[in-house]
Write a protein that binds this DNA or RNA. Structure first.
Lengths: 344, 344
DNA sequence: TATATTTACGCAATCGGTTGCGCTGGACGT
DNA sequence: ACGTCCAGCGCAACCGATTGCGTAAATATA
């Protein structure tokens, strides 16, 4: 059982077939200058001998790996893990590996991770920015060296790269419109860092909806969080609901904070949605579990991952592509109990 | 800006310092046979010139990478993503990369992934088995080639490897005991595949608790699922509660199914915990969101990941370790509303 | 003083593929 | 019959670091 059989290399195949290693190398990847029957013979013998290509050697020669790096904030969040799931599926289909690194939403970590990934000679990069990040020079190393970079969800306009996003403005507009249609008069907003366009655009959509309905924009009803976790959501809701003139609806930029809003309301006897309507964002699993169920905006997370991976792979195929496109995916307003005031 | 400056190699350092590349290589890793001042000089120049080690080349030479492979079922599950988060943290501290591959709980995928990871020349492997898996030969390739394999959570006894687990038997016992203490007389169990020891042991703990309290073991109150998702949990609960003599408690082997049990109860006017107590497993985020909040068993997911990674790294350091240890982490019974019948 | 050790470093092969360039023989054209 | 062209394959130099073995000088031991 314990047999350390030496690995079969293209040299073994070559000498057995009395051809040169280069021929074997080319035959294995259907190079045009190799004869049809030679290709067959090489592949047949390779199969018989159990040859397995050494990607390391190839990577060394090409100075580039078939590994895709993924930079995200936290793996253990519903949206992110679904995103990665999509990336991994697509990448593994194409024979690529996926290596993960989390910034924990800290700018310095993001920089360190970028360096580490670059040193690992990744062949492509998929990024969802840290909450803190405001400068983007740590990505120029990749671009200068023709390593494709694709941003997902938390993107930036300051870099000329592919992006895979949703229309956050439209989604924010849609969500807020829905609240207005349900008869809400004072709608508060729990937003995220305005340096992250996703949050900024959701907020802009929210503001636009108010404007279109000639509703007053009350700055005291807008709070932007740093991390948008449960604690922050709870505190913000408490702040809103203890105002002299509290809101009758909250549009939160993520489900985590929205769920906290519901919990605050429940703890304080505020009826949902009659006294307070709550709208979330992301369609996390919890949105279906919380009682009342949470209205939210659905994100095609897995698809975003798949598409991002496809973009990276496309750039690897055709090195000549210089155009950088922005792919915008559809969102869906999911109306549940937390905002449904009018029965239909 | 667009400067394709050639990479600095140890040869550049060597020639500038008028020494041989081997000296530079050794100096950079504090080899004993290199003089103190030489080491300093090399490191200083390396820093100045912006030298970055080419891991690919090293990997080729050593025929082994500094990458840890991780095989899991699905990334986008709370427990798994937390596990990976821990692994990634620990690995990146040690300068290792982490590459992920998901089996989607399908045996054939697991085999294919194992092959792919082996072909990627990973330096270590962390595995949480697919639900389906019953044969384990696809891991022997790693063991035969001295690539450390560490199993986490969903482990097997058929392979002589390190394991990082919790005491599922004790946890099942503890959880069931709690239900009994709360006055439950007929306790049902939603279990997972009995080929996965985690589920088997939880079930054994459940059975043992009943025995110790001289309670009848009713086979009709035990169902083992294939995937333990929401639908399955809901169906199983429905099955239980429509029995002629329905249970007054359910101990589910995971939170997902437990949450479904609660939802079924709510939909059908079954009061929790008075008419039906529900106990979950994992302490997923939803367990705190569901109303009533779900009692459950807490899993130290992130720590399990960290420890698993540490085990892999340890084996990489000392190739001489042959002993394979099993590390068992503590679990914690978390009592919440869904089982709390007696006020204290 | 001659020999044994230690210290500090160099030589050169090696890991397995990749690829620019060059060579060859036969088909084809005129 | 002779030059042209191209399909088909080989040569050999890489890619960058690692490492067993060898050696010269410095120091220690006999």
């Amino acid at each position: 059982m314990k047999q350390k059989k030496r690995e079969i290399t293209i040299y073994d195949i070559a000498s057995e077939l009395k051809v040169s290693p280069s021929t074997v190398s080319r035959a294995l990847k259907d190079h045009y200058s190799i004869g049809k029957e030679m290709i067959e013979a090489v592949k047949k013998l390779a199969r018989e001998r159990g040859y397995r290509p050494n990607h390391i050697a190839a990577s060394l020669r090409r100075n580039k790996t078939n590994t895709i790096g993924v930079m995200i904030s936290w793996i253990n969040r519903p949206f992110i893990s679904s995103l990665i799931s999509g990336i991994e599926d697509e990448a593994s289909n194409a024979g690529c590996n996926v290596i993960i690194s989390q910034s924990h939403d800290i700018y310095e970590h993001e920089i360190a991770n970028a360096r580490a990934l670059y040193n690992s000679r990744i062949g492509g990069l998929i990024v969802s920015l840290a909450m803190e990040t405001r400068k983007y020079n740590h990505f120029s190393t990749f671009l200068d060296n023709d390593i494709p970079v694709v941003f997902v969800d938390r993107v930036t306009d300051e870099l000329n790269c592919d992006k895979v996003v949703i229309d956050n403005f439209a989604a924010g507009l849609m969500a807020t419109n829905h609240l207005i249609e349900q008869g809400c008069k004072r709608i508060a907003h729990i937003g995220g860092s305005q340096h992250r366009s996703v949050y900024q655009q959701r907020e802009q959509g929210y503001l636009e909806a108010l404007r279109r309905h000639n509703m007053e924009i009350d700055e005291s009803l807008i709070l932007n969080g740093d991390v948008l976790n449960s604690e922050e959501g709870y505190r913000m809701t408490e702040h809103f609901m203890t105002l002299p003139n509290p809101p009758d609806a909250i549009f939160s930029a993520n489900d985590t904070a929205a769920v906290s809003a519901i919990q605050y309301a429940k703890h304080n006897g505020i009826r949902i949605p009659q006294k307070l309507a709550v709208m979330g964002f992301n369609n996390d699993p919890v949105s279906l579990i919380i009682d009342p169920t949470l209205s939210t905006v659905a994100h095609p997370a897995v698809d975003m991952g798949k598409i991002a991976a496809r973009q990276v792979l496309k750039h690897r195929e055709h090195k000549d592509i210089i155009t950088s496109e922005t792919i915008t995916l559809k969102t869906e307003l999911i109306v549940r109990e937390s905002t449904l005031r009018k029965k239909r």
